[in-house]
Amino acid sequence: MSLKVLNTEKAPGAIGPYSQGIQAGNLIFTSGQLPLNPTTGELTSDIRSATKQSLENVKNILESAGSSMDKIVKTLIFLKDMNDFAEMNEVYGSYFPTNPPARSAVQVARLPKDAIIEIEAIALV
Rank of each mutant, 00 (worst) to 15 (best):
M1K: 07
L3Q: 10
L3R: 09
K4Y: 14
V5H: 08
L6E: 01
N7F: 10
N7V: 01
T8W: 07
K10P: 00
A11I: 02
P12H: 02
P12F: 02
A14V: 03
A14R: 04
A14D: 09
I15E: 14
I15M: 15
I15Y: 14
G16V: 00
G16C: 07
P17C: 13
P17H: 14
Y18F: 13
Y18M: 03
S19P: 04
Q20I: 00
Q20W: 05
G21H: 07
G21W: 00
I22G: 02
Q23A: 11
Q23N: 05
G25S: 06
G25E: 06
N26S: 13
L27I: 07
I28G: 01
I28M: 00
F29R: 02
F29N: 00
T30Q: 03
G32A: 13
Q33S: 09
L34T: 09
L34V: 08
P38H: 09
T39E: 15
T40R: 13
G41Q: 07
E42N: 14
E42G: 10
S45M: 15
I47E: 03
I47D: 00
I47M: 04
R48L: 08
R48Y: 11
R48G: 14
S49Q: 15
A50D: 05
K52G: 05
K52N: 15
Q53Y: 05
Q53S: 13
L55M: 12
L55Y: 02
E56T: 13
N57P: 00
N57A: 04
K59F: 10
I61S: 02
I61W: 09
I61G: 01
L62I: 09
E63F: 07
E63M: 12
A65V: 04
G66H: 12
G66Y: 12
G66D: 13
S68F: 01
M69S: 02
D70V: 05
K71I: 07
K71G: 08
K71Y: 08
I72D: 01
V73Q: 11
T75C: 10
T75W: 06
L76F: 11
L76I: 15
I77K: 00
F78V: 00
F78M: 15
L79Y: 04
N83L: 14
D84T: 03
F85Q: 03
A86N: 14
M88L: 08
M88D: 01
M88H: 11
E90N: 14
Y92L: 10
F96P: 04
P97G: 10
P97I: 05
T98H: 13
P101M: 03
A102D: 11
A102E: 13
A102K: 13
R103G: 07
V106R: 12
V106P: 01
Q107F: 09
V108E: 06
A109P: 09
R110S: 14
R110G: 12
L111C: 04
L111S: 10
L111R: 09
P112D: 06
P112S: 03
K113I: 08
D114M: 03
A115G: 07
A115V: 08
A115T: 08
I116F: 02
I116T: 01
I117L: 13
E118I: 06
E118M: 12
I119F: 06
A121R: 01
A121N: 01
I122L: 11
L124D: 05
L124T: 11
L124M: 11
L124I: 14
L124Y: 09
